[in-house]
Design a binder for these strands. Structure first.
Length: 797
DNA sequence: TACGAGTTCTCTATG
DNA sequence: AGAACTCGTA
């Protein structure tokens, strides 16, 4: 940081002198005119509308470097927020590289959440918290809510805790505290939402805990109620940069506006066409309204794309053009040539996975006259994570290496969470949620009854569960095996806690500590060894060693990895802090693999070869999205399609299947409406190579493009008959009495005798959205789209 | 209290 | 299809 001490010289420098200095800055020459404009407009509000692949991160990082180089700010005076840890890391890395030194001094470059944790630790007392509060993850949150719901005598069957969690999350995204909850929300969660919200917040306070939503909300509350605190930070953060501004929710928006309220030196970067997080509270309105919020804002559009071929860009533009209310941007490139976007229909999800697997292998080895690509140059982007399984199954069986990005994350795994609960309990013995998690894991004969007694003892004495358990034992409220085991657990926990403390006090002394648990002469126990000791002595490791289920071995390996991860940290609490915010699962693995991930996880990434499977109505666009948010939902889905296509640099392949298993039930699918929106001039329709011996691919395809009635020809192939036979068996062997609410859809009711073009006559046995479940007289149980059904009686004879 | 069979619910996505 | 959860039995 000392290299910036003479930076004051710039403060008084004339514009001309500054311009001179700027000319000497080589990094500016690497920018195109628009990027350069965005970088050089240092003061006042700036909105950078950056389309996909237009060098947004480059502009953003260069801007930071420019701020530093011109002496406008020191590294610790720049507030730069991103949404993901990955983006933050990337930016840190790039700034560091450009500055030619490690930029240790950018402490305020991070995610909204990590920055808010830092701030909240400093001002925790202003919202009645202690600065060492714990951060609950979704799992803890749900368990806590479940307790409250049950305590309030609500049937959590009818009103699941997850739903309440969703409602509360929604409120927190809007920065609505229990006190300023709008009246319009009174009905939420059967009218009990607001009261439960209040109870939840009180309970969090008692536990000295916050959830993710609180991090932002508490800071907004603090800034609003304590002007002195706000002013302090307004002065300190003299320049603010925001990445992915289109993804900000109301709380984040308020937070930013408060912080930028003085100098207004705020630069927001975003792309309204890539706003795909409306479901978690993001407000596209924030970016659309920027110029109103910050009058005199400088708006820069980055439209030159450096990533994709013209065909890919044209396809993406064609799709996104269907959306209304865009800020308006058109990507262009001076790159020429390239392959058209490829489109192919398949029989079912399995066939689709198989075809993509073969295609990947062909591209890998460059056979069929195609260029050869490494596996890590290829990615499969799906709408919903359950689509991944078909690919994993297939790739496992053909031995194609793949990597799932953003799947079940390391720190969310059962064994990791259990182990972490032990660590948490040692660091903060009053962590009741952690205690509940591990009292009986491994089995200690402490079931519901015993746990209830512990709860009771704790509540009566107004102490945390661990103390409550002690009291219970002293009062002989528990006897036998349970009592012995509980005593041992408590003793262990205390001993381990003492070992951490001994470590802290005597750190660096190299002295031998005898705190009762360790033999004299043993070397000092560091947190890594301690973690291992805890896992071993608690019997947790043993539990998995004795477990003969197939995944037990993997779990043990994960535990080893967890202990190894501790090496990067000074102590246990530092580690816990990290984990609560960084849920990344970036096991850096250099080997070449195909990436499989959701479209959401793919935002910000790019690959030479991209596969976009599952483009079927209901799956993509997702039915749920459209049901819940109507036109808005559909537009968000369309943006998702846009994001997907624009991930591709050279080859983009879109596919759909005519049949797919959903919830274990076969369903016929229609090609996505987005397929109709692809401009034909930029699309190459592929024919499936002789699978099932038919040319259904071609037939289905053209039908897909022109009429979307792909069903017709598909159903005459041998594969279809085989499928039908399987369906028959399925329904015979396991008669499914899937009795769904006897709700009428627009025209048909349960029990109606109906007619379907292809399947013939049948009776409606279930209704699921716009789909009807029909027991066909010939074809068996099928789910079909309601509009393809006519009442049997409607047919004129 | 532990375990296994049966039943119901899920499948958007993030820190 | 698989996970999560419930309930009855040993």
């Amino acid at each position: 940081m000392s290299s910036f001490d003479d930076s004051d010289a710039y403060e008084g420098a004339s514009l001309a002198a500054r311009a001179m200095a700027a000319r000497a800055m080589p990094y500016l020459d690497e920018l195109n005119p628009e990027q350069r404009a965005a970088v050089e407009a240092l003061d006042g509000p700036v909105l950078m509308l950056a389309g996909a692949g237009t060098g947004k991160t480059k502009a953003l990082t260069t801007r930071i470097v420019h701020l530093l180089n011109t002496g406008r700010a020191r590294p610790n005076e720049i507030l730069a927020v991103t949404f993901t840890n990955k983006a933050a890391r990337e930016m840190k890395h790039r700034v560091g590289r450009m500055m030619g030194e490690a930029v240790e001094g950018m402490p305020w470059l991070g995610t909204f959440h990590s920055i808010c944790v830092k701030l909240l630790r400093r001002h925790a007392e202003l919202v009645e918290l202690n600065s060492n509060f714990t951060i609950l993850d979704t799992d803890d949150q749900i368990r806590l809510l479940k307790q409250l719901i049950r305590a309030a005598n609500i049937d959590d069957k009818r009103w699941p805790a997850r739903a309440l969690a969703g409602v509360i999350d929604h409120w927190k995204n809007r920065a609505w505290t229990p006190d300023n909850l709008p009246a319009s929300e009174a009905h939420a969660y059967d009218g009990k939402g607001p009261a439960l919200y209040r109870m939840y917040q009180t309970r969090l306070c008692e536990l000295n805990a916050v959830d993710f939503g609180d991090l932002l909300m508490h800071m907004v509350t603090i800034f609003q109620a304590h002007d002195d605190v706000l002013k302090q930070y307004q002065r300190w953060f003299c320049y603010i940069l925001v990445d992915e501004y289109q993804d900000t929710n109301v709380a984040q928006y308020l937070w930013l506006r408060l912080l930028a309220g003085g100098h207004q030196n705020i630069c927001c970067v975003g792309d309204d066409d890539q706003s795909i997080y409306g479901w978690r509270g993001a407000e596209v309105g924030n970016i659309l309204r920027f110029e109103k919020d910050f009058p005199g804002a400088h708006v820069v559009r980055l439209e030159q794309n450096y990533r994709s071929t013209a065909h890919i860009l044209a396809a993406a533009s064609g799709v996104i053009a269907g959306n209304k209310g865009r800020l308006g941007k058109e990507l262009w490139t001076d790159a020429e040539g390239g392959e058209k976007v490829r489109l192919i229909g398949h029989w079912d999800g399995e066939t689709e996975a198989r075809w993509i697997g073969e295609e990947i292998e062909a591209m890998q080895y460059g056979t069929r006259g195609l260029q050869s690509y490494g596996l890590d140059k290829m990615a499969i982007l799906v709408r919903a994570s359950h689509q991944m399984r078909a690919f994993e199954d297939r790739f496992l069986s053909i031995g194609l290496p793949y990597r799932v990005i953003g799947g079940p994350r390391f720190y969310e795994r059962l064994e990791i969470r259990d182990a972490m609960a032990y660590f948490r309990l040692v660091v903060s013995p009053s962590d009741d949620l952690a205690f509940e998690r591990i009292v009986n894991t491994p089995k200690r004969g402490l079931g519901d009854k015993a746990q209830q007694k512990i709860q009771m003892a704790a509540r009566e004495n107004g102490v945390p569960l661990m103390q409550g358990a002690r009291i219970l034992l002293q009062n002989k409220g528990l006897t036998g095996k349970g009592a012995t085991e509980l005593t041992r657990l408590l003793d262990n926990l205390e001993r381990w806690a003492m070992m951490t403390r001994a470590r802290v006090i005597d750190a660096g002394e190299g002295e031998v500590i005898d705190d009762g648990g360790i033999e004299v002469g043993e070397p000092e126990v560091n947190h890594i060894e301690l973690a291992q000791i805890m896992l071993d002595e608690s019997g947790y490791t043993e539990m998995w060693q004795n477990d003969k289920s197939p995944d037990a071995q993997g779990r043990l390996e994960n535990l080893k990895e967890l202990v190894k991860a501790l090496e990067q940290f000074e102590n246990l609490s530092g580690f816990l802090e990290h984990v609560s915010l960084i849920m990344d699962n970036n096991s850096e693995d250099a080997s070449e693999k195909v990436s499989i991930m959701t479209l959401h996880a793919a935002k910000g990434l790019e690959f030479p070869v991209v596969f976009l499977p599952g483009w079927e109505d209901g799956l993509f666009p997702s039915q749920r999205s459209m049901d819940e948010s109507g036109q808005t939902g559909l537009e968000e889905e369309r943006r998702l399609a846009y994001v997907g296509i624009t991930r591709a640099e050279e080859v983009c392949t879109i596919s759909f299947a005519g049949n797919r298993q959903v919830f274990g039930q076969w369903q016929s699918q229609l090609p996505s409406r987005f397929i109709d929106e692809l401009p034909e001039a930029h699309v190459d329709v592929l024919t499936a190579p002789g699978l099932y011996g038919g040319n259904y691919g071609a037939a289905g395809m053209s039908a897909g493009i022109e009429t979307r009635a792909a069903e017709a020809d598909v159903y005459s192939s041998p594969g279809w008959r085989r499928m039908q036979a399987r369906n028959q068996q399925r329904t015979v062997s396991k008669p499914k009495t899937n009795v769904i609410d006897v709700q009428a859809t627009s025209a048909h009711t349960m029990g109606d005798r109906v007619f379907h073009q292809k399947f013939g006559y049948g009776a409606i046995v279930g209704v699921d959205g716009d789909k009807l479940e029909i027991e066909f007289e010939k074809a068996g149980l099928k789910k079909v789209i309601a509009k393809f059904i006519t009442g049997a009686d409607d047919i004129p004879f």
